[in-house]
Amino acid sequence: MAGGGFCRLPDGRMVVAVSLPSPGGDGGRVRVLVHALNRARALTRLRNLGLRAVYLRGNAEPPSPDEVTAVLHHPDGLVWRTSPDDRGELWHPIRTLLVAQP
């Protein structure tokens, strides 16, 4: 269901990037970054948050160095933003994406 990719850090941990449909249903996409021990744990973290249909097939869209830096500097190790190509938008904590839509 999602495009994405991953990169292995020097300490063996992984940063996984997944592009998902926007929850607003406007046809847009969000880019989610997860820092975890391995790919399976990264996807499990997303599934535990209610994103059940998240899969990672291949490494077509690996995280950029800027994305890796963003997720490593966030205390939760889990961030997102709506416009992956817009460098002006800041990264948001995942809890703001999962807040119930009005």
Rank of each mutant, 00 (worst) to 15 (best):
V30S: 00
Q101R: 11
A42P: 04
R87G: 13
L49M: 11
D26I: 04
S64W: 12
T82L: 06
L37K: 13
G24N: 02
R39G: 13
P65Q: 07
P21K: 00
L72C: 13
G88E: 13
L56H: 11
A60K: 09
N38I: 09
P84I: 01
G88P: 00
L51Q: 11
R41V: 01
G28N: 07
R8E: 14
S22E: 03
L51Y: 10
R29G: 03
R87A: 15
G5A: 09
G5P: 12
G12D: 03
G25A: 05
H73M: 13
L43T: 00
L72V: 14
Y55P: 00
P21N: 03
V71S: 11
V99R: 14
E67S: 00
L33W: 01
H73C: 13
W80Y: 10
L56G: 07
Y55F: 12
L98K: 05
G24E: 10
G27K: 03
L78G: 06
N59R: 08
S83F: 13
L72K: 15
V68C: 13
V54F: 01
V34E: 05
P23V: 02
T69Q: 10
T69N: 07
H92D: 02
T44N: 14
R41L: 08
F6E: 06
P63G: 11
W91Q: 06
V99A: 12
V18G: 01
L51M: 15
S19L: 12
V34A: 13
H74G: 08
D85T: 15
E89Q: 15
T44A: 15
P21D: 06
P65W: 01
L43E: 01
S64F: 11
G24L: 10
V30A: 04
G4A: 11
L33A: 00
N38E: 15
A36T: 01
V18D: 01
R81C: 09
V68Q: 14
L72R: 15
D76C: 04
A40W: 08
G27Y: 05
V71R: 07
P65V: 07
D26P: 01
E67T: 00
R13E: 08
P21Y: 02
D11Q: 05
